[in-house]
Amino acid sequence: MAGQRPIKFRLLELFSDEKEHWNNEIVTQMQKEYNMNSNFGRDSLNFDILELASGGMLKSVESKVDEDGVYKKGFLLHKYVITDFGKVRASDACLEYV
């Protein structure tokens, strides 16, 4: 159910398909689900992804400069994938992996 679980739970859930996702794509999807369409909402969601990566639950596998301004022009875009530790924490949160 969209918008019903805490933001970081949902983020882990989106990554739990074990595929690689660009941060800007995830942020855009989350903005819609959680109705956080302001710039503050966008940055706050991106920060949550950053915290998950910092905590070792996601890892960045590819980066590129946002030349076209799809997210924030001149900033780095990251492609993340869930880590084993991320899967463990996701299963703690009663997500996919049991």
């Binding site: 019903q4 679980r5 805490p6 933001i7 739970f9 959680y34 703690d92 949160a93 009663c94």
Partner: peptide, 14 residues
């Protein structure tokens, strides 16, 4: 506040 309510509900995992 919305996020607070969502987090509060997840007592066991969080």
């Amino acid at each position: 506040f919305g996020e607070m309510k969502r987090t509060l509900k997840e007592f066991h995992p969080c």
